[in-house]
Design a protein around this nucleic acid. Structure first.
Lengths: 226, 226
DNA sequence: GCGGAAACGGAACTCAACTTCCGTTTCTCA
DNA sequence: TGAGAAACGGAAGTTGAGTTCCGTTTCCGC
């Protein structure tokens, strides 16, 4: 999670700062297409620098990819927060998940970010990819959606993570992103939104009490199955 | 897809046949826990043989893993066929998907089988993991479920593959297998089954015509989204 | 039992990553 | 502008997997 800086904190030399940016930019491009399989040599080459320089800024490959992962996660969570700030509605969630799917369709790094993150969450300690603050913000978001009664309440935050991760894999495996997103939304029981293009044709006209009934039924089922 | 046999087709020597079985057994065990990351040295060691012997039977690691993948796929498809032979009902599908999720929960190789398979399907030619006959049988199964009006009809076979693959990833990422299966089923609009333990608390008491309406609505939605 | 083909074993080789090392170049500050 | 610290470059080192090679052992038909 932390990088290189020899004495306590001297500002980077101008050229070094420029080079560091070039490295991150190059790595980010490669992360988009190659995912975690990106190679340090390629990063250096694309940045127009030697490998040694890359290692001067990021002591290991993991340190570099951790930065890329954190950056994507930060972006995603911030997007989600602003999407749900004004209204934590079904429509907002649908729009967000669909945009996520679309982005995942063209960014392998983003798909792998969710995978890395959900396995990192399990370990916590000693993991370059783990960031507590982001985890808390993510947690708050899921809770918010559940509190609003939009997402089925028997989903733990870890399950939500896992589902996002699965959606990414589905898209990687060639599934149509829009369709994959829709299956996820219907599966999480997000009611059809009221804005354009996001309806899904299920559960309309169900009374207010039905949601609670359904959660109870699901709990029973889970108990029976496990 | 094919193995080693020097002259046209002489039967294997007794010890060689025994050893081959030992190799496959050992590899299968490792595949369950390590997935495609299994190592040839470990396979040899667990089988109580030298690496050279493993390579005598399987010229490359890919040849070995292809056999494991094919075997799992064969098993899965046969299970699905027999599950849907007697009744292609929602209950049968629910039970099948749930059992799949449960198995995936304890078999990394099975999860990776779906991943490998769905990426292999895309390539077809030149891929050790690709098997046409199995693909056709899988295709028939999905069509059958759709013809019975149980699974939303705007799902292509490739999408179904991708979703199974995603479910595997979700489980790998730590999601509760039963829950992941249920989300998938609800997302695919499989109505709650009428047999024990497979209900999910959605859409009960809906009239017979609703299923068709739902499919039509889904088609509209898909058209709007794509 | 014997001869030759088949099969075995495992040390050594290969190859493709990541990482280190150190001589050279560039910047910054007085 | 000159000294010294900081940064750079890229060849060489390391590591960890898959794969090959060939001397030795085991089987099997005569």
């Amino acid at each position: 999670m932390v990088l290189t800086q020899s004495p306590p904190n001297r500002p980077l030399r101008a050229d070094a700062r420029r080079n560091r940016e070039a490295i991150v930019t190059a790595a980010d491009d490669l992360f988009r297409t190659e995912g975690l399989a990106l190679q340090m040599d390629e990063v250096a080459q694309r940045a127009g620098l030697g490998v040694g320089t890359v290692y001067r800024h990021f002591p290991t490959k993991e340190a570099l990819t951790a930065e890329l992962v954190q950056h994507r996660l930060e972006t995603v969570i911030t997007r989600a927060e602003s999407a749900m700030e004004t209204d934590a509605s079904a429509a907002a969630i649908r729009a967000f998940i669909h945009s996520m799917a679309r982005m995942m369709g063209e960014d392998l790094g983003l798909r792998e970010t969710f995978q890395v993150q959900s396995t990192a969450d399990a370990k916590r300690e000693e993991c370059a990819y783990y960031n507590c603050e982001l985890h808390d913000r993510k947690y708050a978001l899921v809770r918010k959606a559940q509190a609003a009664g939009i997402v089925r309440s028997d989903l733990a935050v870890e399950d939500f993570d896992a589902l996002m991760c699965g959606m990414g894999q589905s898209i990687l495996a060639g599934g149509n992103p829009e369709l994959m997103a829709d299956v996820l939304l219907v599966g999480m029981r997000v009611p059809a939104g009221d804005t354009a293009g996001c309806a899904a044709g299920a559960d309309e006209g169900v009374g207010a009490g039905a949601s609670a009934d359904r959660a109870a039924a699901a709990a029973d089922v889970a108990a029976a199955l496990l």
